[in-house]
Write a protein that binds this DNA or RNA. Sequence first.
DNA 1: GAACAGACTAT
DNA 2: ATAGTC
DNA 3: GTTC
Length: 621
Amino acid sequence: MKKAKLHNGGNIPKSSTGSRSDPRLSNPGKCVGVSKLPEISCTKPKIPSGNSTTASPSGDNFFLRGVIISIIPERVPKARVDLLRKRIGERGGGIVTFHPQGALDETVTHYVVDDSVDAEEALRVFLMKQPDLEALSETLSNVQCLPCKWISGSLMSRTRLDEGGFFLHRQLLDLITRKMTASRKLDCTPPKSAFALFSLAVLATPFACTPKSEPSSMLSVNAGTGGDGSGIKRKWESIAEHASSGYEDSGGAESSDSDEEDSDVDEEFLARVQPGHMPFAAKFVCSYPSSSGRKNVNGHITDQLEKLQNTYKSTGQDFRAMAYGKAIGTVRNAPRITKIEDIKGLRGIGSGIKSKIIEILETGACEKVAAYCMDNEMNKAIELFCGIHGVSSKTALKWASSNLRTLEELPEKVRLNRVQQIGLKHYHDFLERIPRSEVVEIESTVKEAALRLQDGLELITCGSYRRGKPTCGDVDILVTHPDGKSHRNIFAPLLDSLRSSGFITDDLLVADEGSQKKFLGVCLLPNPGAKHRRLDIIVVPYSEFGCALLYFTGSAHFNRSMRSLAHKANMALSHHSLNKNAVRVGKKKVSDGEPLPGMITEKAIFDYLGLKYLEPADRDH
DNA sequence: GAACAGACTAT
DNA sequence: ATAGTC
DNA sequence: GTTC
Ligand SMILES: O=c1ccn([C@H]2C[C@H](O)[C@@H](COP(=O)(O)OP(=O)(O)OP(=O)(O)O)O2)c(=O)[nH]1
Ligand SMILES: [Mg+2]
């Protein structure tokens, strides 16, 4: 099942970690800073000449004369916004509050966004105000969209810095033209603005304020419906639902450099600290059984945090979403939180989430949730599209940004790849979870076909089924053979057999090569009213059985935790093997190390890592 | 400021 | 290289 | 967003 995919790319939140006690994101008032600087806050000097780069001579105390700035508050700490407002006013600039909903204010000459905001993210915000790409490009071509460091630098140097020295604006314009070109292809609408051609010509070189691969977002702000609704199970959801305490890093104990290249140091070390625990294992959730059964006494808090987590996930801010997942896990397992001191010492809760919890404690809700996770068209469309197998945050956002809103219009208006076509075809079936009894039927069907082909094959249904969940998102079947070789020639024949019986209806992915074979696809039981179900089959050599079983049983969060732990111990754990002496420089692997022999059971792997064995049901983190 | 799991396919 | 999935 |  898909669910919590984590594509690469780090989300770089940069600033914003401040101690802001939650910004009042949307102020109904038109002018910002009313309380502090009434005299300037509503000034709107006439626009000088759009985006001219006329820098005032230094020494001019009012070098921002004629400039009307709108600060997009998302991710800029409130304290910083307040300070900027004040300083801008002092230098003769005007300020207009940024309203997520209303139309773009025509008088604004400069939009300022947090330094960590990239072009894609900025576009998303502007699209909420002006959904029409062409109109937007028209408007934006007459203003500047700049990172925060432009205004801070200007204030610092008492000079209006040359806007041309910042790439964000050009990147934004370029992004818009690319999108217009793309949607024109779809609509067969002819190009319009000459500006589009121009900006193509000035494509900027990525730099400084350039996207870091994850467009972190700042969808907008708007008080109002704290929407959530949606009965559909989002794919990006539940990335770490049951985390016990965050699986991260070790505390003090750092081994790192020092040699110990020698083969046996590892074993000796482990043997010494054995039976049991690496000195740093304490901070990894894979050291503890998952909290099955215990009830969450902080539901009022985790509910709010989950909304933020889901929104971050759906907008591609995976690391931020993951951080929320860890925080949610610790809050869920903590005793009832009623006061600020109760938060102290909880792992995964830093200043940002702490302030939100405090707000929930005091007011019963969190403004950021209402503002950010709002139930608007855009968010609903993104959520809808993310429900398609083969579609995730990037694609969903792209489609929603080009004003697509329903499943029906997709086939005609965008180019769906093969997988997405299948995903769309079974959209509703795939959203349903599978009762265990039906998993058993599917398992039996596959098992019978397999055993007809080869005696002695072992089939184990893994995933959430093996962890004992009452319903499953899909069926994950591992196939191996204890003789170490009879697994080899059964993969394709097995699939052929299941296809010809009509059981397998679609292939999503067939991976033939490599020691492990993998099938991701769709099956259908020959029962009246049966639904199409996602079926994953892997065929593995017996030598990799332990690692493969461990992997395929999960949970995903548990796996990540255990792999982190292995990594910390200079090992590397994958679905193939547990390697020792794995060497990495940063996150780049220099040497895979050597696979450890004998890791043919899950127990052996737990042991080698110094972990207490956990039953599958206790790995449901 | 780097890391946050690790491996795989499709495009 | 990016997007998506397990 | 959090940790080291
Ligand atoms: O990002 C991932 C996703 C999955 N897995 C492993 C663990 C997981 O248990 C197994 C099967 O994946 P699936 O997506 O089916 O998860 P599940 O645990 O079976 O849950 P669901 O009930 O949604 O199928 O593959 C990972 O290691 N990383
Ligand atoms: Mg599954």
